[in-house]
């Protein structure tokens, strides 16, 4: 017993180093797997508060480009509205429009990240605004990511520029679907894998979300085909996609809640 205590006292530096290093390693390994519980994340009042107050100042720097983006979106939505054949004068109530499947919330990105292999963003909405894990996040141009951890006022978003992320996506012109991944290199390009080779792919084809998960609805834009090749077994295409979104310049985003998610998941679990 005496010797054990002596050993601990003699090697206390090394033992403390080993303990803390192993603890840090455990945290690191957890952060490399999707949706594992992370003790340290930026969705808390200290880091969230700091990023929020910094963002209050720095958002003025991007005001012009963000206004441009919002005007473009307004323009697109106005086109849709005035060219649709809905008669706004009539008092006809379509009861099938009640109980919509998706709810939208708006938020701002207060911490952007695109330089590392597993990028995580921070938004200024949290549990107080009824944001929960696994809600989808999109911008006016396309998919941004999926909500991961939430605190009272903030939430972290697993960006599509994250090597652990897997989103179901498909070609717009046919229903061939695959998985969206990222190889961790260029923040303007993501990869679509598992598209069968009998699908007709050409450069410039639009890629959209497939709506096969309960996170994103169908028809949200992702990007266009940049180039493609067959994988080693020659059964599937590996497609490089250039994103619609400029992931290095993000500010206003929308969060999507699938109202029927619980029902879908219950069905799938049975």
């Amino acid at each position: 017993m005496q010797q054990i205590i002596n050993f601990i006292i003699r090697n206390k530096n090394f033992l403390l180093f080993l303990l803390l290093f192993l603890l840090a390693l455990v945290f690191t390994i957890q952060s490399h797997s999707y949706h594992k519980s992370k003790f340290v994340n930026s969705a808390n009042f200290v880091s969230g508060g700091v990023y929020n107050s910094v963002n209050n100042i720095s958002e003025y720097l991007h005001l012009k480009s963000q206004n441009q983006l919002l005007t473009e979106e307004n323009n697109r939505l106005r086109n849709l509205l005035f060219n649709s054949n809905v008669n706004a004068d009539s008092t006809f109530i379509d009861t099938t429009k009640f109980g919509l499947a998706y709810k939208f919330y708006s938020a701002s990105i207060i911490k952007n990240s695109y330089t590392t292999k597993d990028n995580i963003l921070l938004i200024n909405k949290g549990e107080k605004d009824s944001i929960k894990q696994d809600y989808g996040v999109i911008s006016s141009k396309g998919v941004i990511g999926i909500i991961d951890k939430t605190s009272n006022r903030f939430a972290t978003v697993i960006s599509i520029l994250n090597t652990t992320n897997k989103i179901s996506a498909q070609l717009k012109k046919s229903n061939h679907f695959g998985t969206l991944t990222w190889n961790g290199q260029n923040p303007a390009t993501v990869q679509l894998i598992d598209i069968p080779v009998n699908a007709k792919v050409t450069v410039g084809d639009t890629i959209i979300t497939s709506g096969r998960s309960s996170i994103f609805p169908k028809n949200i834009g992702i990007g266009v085909v940049k180039d493609f090749e067959k994988d080693v077994a020659e059964n599937f295409y590996e497609i490089n996609i250039s994103l619609f979104n400029d992931m290095t310049n993000l500010e206003h985003v929308y969060i999507i809640e699938n109202v029927h998610k619980q029902e879908i998941n219950n069905l799938l679990d049975e």
């Binding site: 803390l20 290093f21 603890l23 840090a24 390693l25 455990v26 945290f27 690191t28 390994i29 957890q30 952060s31 490399h32 992370k38 340290v40 994340n41 930026s42 808390n44 200290v46 880091s47 700091v50 990023y51 990240s113 590392t116 597993d118 995580i120 921070l122 972290t156």
Partner: peptide, 12 residues
């Protein structure tokens, strides 16, 4: 790590 959401790599 907390600020950058990087797990524990900076700590290690």
């Amino acid at each position: 790590d907390m600020f950058l959401d990087s797990g524990g790599m900076h700590a290690a």
